[in-house]
Design a protein around this nucleic acid. Sequence first.
DNA 1: CCTGACGGTGAGCAAGCGCTTAGGGACCGG
DNA 2: CCGGTCCCTAAGCGCTTGCTCACCGTCAGG
Lengths: 208, 208
Amino acid sequence: MSAAEETGGGEEQPWGEVSPDAARRLLIAAVEAFAERGYHATTTRDIAGRAGMSPAALYIHYKTKEELLHRISRIGHDKALAILRTAADGEGTAAERLTAAVRSFVGWHAAHHTTARVVQYELDALGAEHRTEIVALRRKTDEAVRDIINDGVRAGEFDVPDVPGTTLAVLSLCIDVARWFNVAGRRTPDEVGALYADLVLRMVGAGT
Amino acid sequence: MSAAEETGGGEEQPWGEVSPDAARRLLIAAVEAFAERGYHATTTRDIAGRAGMSPAALYIHYKTKEELLHRISRIGHDKALAILRTAADGEGTAAERLTAAVRSFVGWHAAHHTTARVVQYELDALGAEHRTEIVALRRKTDEAVRDIINDGVRAGEFDVPDVPGTTLAVLSLCIDVARWFNVAGRRTPDEVGALYADLVLRMVGAGT
DNA sequence: CCTGACGGTGAGCAAGCGCTTAGGGACCGG
DNA sequence: CCGGTCCCTAAGCGCTTGCTCACCGTCAGG
């Protein structure tokens, strides 16, 4: 561990997959700006300024402002989906897997709420092609949750009269964390994850 | 019943409180445009065009584009809060009142999802003064829901370890309906309201 | 020392933005 | 018929936007 000191926890640094360094700095600046003001209210000058560069520098690494949003959205969705699947595909009862899935999915949305806000709420700002690509990823997220719930119903663990509706509500609940979560608030991402996992278990009729 | 034929249900027409007629047409056009593309991506020319008027006509009835958003947000919040309180202040057990509250609040968000989308998701686009005014209204919404939950806990009807957290989650769930509800979807606003009322009852430990 | 590639800047263009202003037509009381 | 009021439009102002282009410093390879 020589360059770019880690926090020691073993967690890899965010946006490590983006290179070169200048492109990553621009992307991080864009995430902050988009999350704060929204895509349309953010100017390319603002993004470049936050990254400590001139407005023109942005266009060396990205063709358009929309491409920046797409890159953020794509990477963010990939990560959220990976986190969800890791928990969903684990061992254990449906209740245990649903708990793990909600806990980690919600935890990610809270801990990375700036990224999550952009990922979840700026979908309409994408161009038509990029949007359909992202929508496909969201459908996979949907399926992952629905599969756990169906497993639980089949095993007799859950009592769910309306599986598609409940799936929709569970995901809606988790995603909306990105909108209201605030670092200055009283709850840590882990605490929110635990609370939500409990609430979701109750929703599927497998409460404590 | 002579002018502006009603649907017969006794429901008064939306935005009836806005006059004169041209101002109401502009406001309705703005709601549609804001809901579709977002506040910042909507131009004053677009709003005026939808209302069948020239761009300058907007400024006869509204001082700025932001004032239009504020009017929409204010009226929408008032209406949503009124609907919630009517149900919350009714007779019956806490469970019955919570059911009625969620059912009508969610039903409104689904039926008027274009308005609700603007009201709930364009808060940041308001100016500082207008935003604090609206935030105060949202706090009252929060209190109304928390009061019912507290009543239920006190009466022994509900089992809620974390009242503020559960209140937050319930409202988050209800509000997010505005984001995903689609007229082309399979569910009517009433059906969504009934489903959500059931889910919320489970969340507070008073499930069927 | 020269050369070329790379990654950056300063200045600025065309287009679109929110908003203003001068003026016109319909209507109404006298 | 007149004068005033109420809405509305055509034109356009000043500014910001996303994006481009000519140019430049740095540095490795020959």
